[in-house]
């Protein structure tokens, strides 16, 4: 552990403030609880909200997994995992099934989550209405009275213009039939995993100073229209490494002649499948 700093970096008073915010977030699913976000030793926009949430919940018997883009070996995931290994001395893992806390940026693991696990999402912009209404004073009122008309209009305009809803990631959802929520920039491929998931999902936005939550077994519905039901991305191909056909695939450019291949974005899931096949 790093000398001079508290366990998991944050001081106890800050943890208490964040813990109270987390409990209220769980009590009001999908509602963004304002909190006194602190400056962290990592830049805003690089996971400070997720780090503060993780730092406030983590204990010495936890096992932490950190992913970015679904992969454990991306540089920012490594940096955050090291931060907690250093400041909290906790065990870390790349295996989804072994983790008690999973901090993530932009993905939900392919391996189904189990009861008792906590997923901590890093959130850049927590407000689902922000692109449509830049003013916090306005959007707060819209949430207060569940007035989400502008979002429905926006999606409807997409359909009129493109023939389908053009949002592909950070696709808005309604939590427990009340609050409109941004699931953070996960691809819409991951949205169905939010619904009735046995794990607790916590969302931290450091720069924007908001915490919100989806408790386990909570109804989470992606917005859609009866004649244009929600659908997820599909690929005509399978993972070049493990052969998966029902996982989110990243396109990798292999040469400068237009050569490319598709591989799983979830590096742990992919490695495990290869292991089993071998």
């Amino acid at each position: 552990m790093t000398a001079g700093y508290n366990f998991a970096y944050l001081d106890e008073q800050t943890k208490r403030m964040i813990r109270r915010a987390i409990l209220k977030a769980v009590a009001i699913p999908g509602y963004q609880v304002p909190f006194g976000s602190r400056e962290m030793p990592l830049p805003y926009g690089w996971g400070t909200g997720g780090i503060q949430v993780t730092a406030s919940i983590i204990g010495s018997d936890d096992v932490l997994k950190v992913i970015d883009q679904g992969a454990d070996d991306t540089t920012n995931a490594i940096s955050i995992r090291r931060f907690f290994a250093k400041t909290a001395g906790v065990a870390t893992t790349t295996r989804t099934a072994d983790a008690t806390i999973i901090q993530t940026r932009h993905r939900i693991p392919e391996t189904p989550l189990r009861a008792g696990q906590i997923v901590v999402f890093q959130v850049p912009i927590p407000e689902p209405l922000r692109w449509l209404e830049p003013r916090e004073s306005e959007t707060r009122q819209m949430h207060a009275y569940a007035d989400y008309a502008i979002m429905h209009v926006k999606l409807y305009e997409d359909i009129a213009r493109y023939g389908h809803i053009a949002t592909t990631y950070d696709y808005p959802v309604i939590v427990n039939e009340r609050y409109l929520m941004r699931p953070s920039p996960i691809p819409k491929f991951d949205n169905p995993k939010l619904d009735m998931n046995p794990a607790l999902m916590l969302f931290g936005a450091g720069r924007e100073k908001r915490i919100y939550a989806v408790p386990p077994y909570t109804i989470v519905k992606s917005l859609d229209f009866e004649d244009h039901p929600f659908s997820i991305e599909t690929w005509d191909t399978s993972c070049a490494l493990c052969g998966a056909t029902n996982a989110f695939l990243d396109e990798v450019i292999t040469d400068d002649h237009g050569g490319k291949m598709f591989v799983c974005s979830d590096s742990d899931h992919c490695a495990e499948r290869k292991e089993k096949a071998a």
Partner: peptide, 18 residues
């Protein structure tokens, strides 16, 4: 104080989430 508060919080969180 640090470890005990963390442990109690996780149990309260567990109870609130379930």
């Amino acid at each position: 104080p640090v470890a005990d508060a963390q442990m109690v919080f996780r149990r309260i969180l567990d109870a609130s989430a379930h």
